[in-house]
Amino acid sequence: MIISNLQRVAAIASVATLGLGATAASAQDMPELVINDEIAITTHAPAPAYLENLDEVISGWVFRSTETQALQMDDFDNPGMIFVDKAIDAWDKVEGTAGKSCAACHTGGPEEFAGLRATLPKWNEEKQALYTMEDYINECRTERMGAEAWKWSGADMTAMNALISLQSRGMTINVATDGPVADLWEQGKEIYYTRVGQLDLSCANCHEDNYGTMIRADRLSQGQVNGFPTYRLKNAKLNSIQGRFKGCMKNVRATPYKEGSEEFHALQLYVASRGNGLTVESPSVRN
């Protein structure tokens, strides 16, 4: 109930405030994102050279209403932190045939992973595959703990992902696009610009050509993924990157690729690299 009211407030506010402010937004009145009065987030950065059609990359936070923005500015207000707390408990929980918890091997705590989120997805030399956070977590669970793999976008997975990602909050996104991932990056770019579905839309049609404009009550963002896992007011849970891709594809009436598929890995790599220069915001709050 509280959530649904929040949603309404956010929806009305986004039109009321952003509707007027959109064209007037200048460097001076651009809102700044500082979390807990401590962690400065880069919400605008020069676009990487390989983005031919963008001058600037912009955090999705910028496109949200003042009320939604405020929820991410203090961890006591950020509903995503509830799930991070659950993951802190899960961290110490022994699971699987090896009788281990995360803590059994990672004695330094989740803090050991500071910096990791900013580089994902990245090439795993040993596995000869592109690895996302979900891949790393499930590799630990199945190969070292002897536990069941978690579902890609399940509550356990998104929470643990958020806890580990949180250790990199405020760090600059720096996803590699060359070397062993070069072909996958090209594949991801191809998917990004390919129109799909009955509505015949590509990622670029909305998130590159029309970001900042209203699509009904929602303001289109650049579709940056630096804040994932993202707590969405719409579904009141943490959302994975590939789960969001799936939702977008269904919205345009296209058959989504599967979570964990090569196609979504390639797309995640390409989209993540479009955010190079922004900072990790996980867990971010969006509508």
Partner: peptide, 24 residues
């Protein structure tokens, strides 16, 4: 243009099964 075609079935990719062969 970004605007979808409202009466077209050919030349589309990966259309969700329940919309296949159907116009908007």
């Amino acid at each position: 243009t970004i605007m979808p075609a409202f009466y077209r079935t050919d030349g589309l990719n990966r259309v969700l099964e329940k919309f296949q062969g159907k116009t908007v």
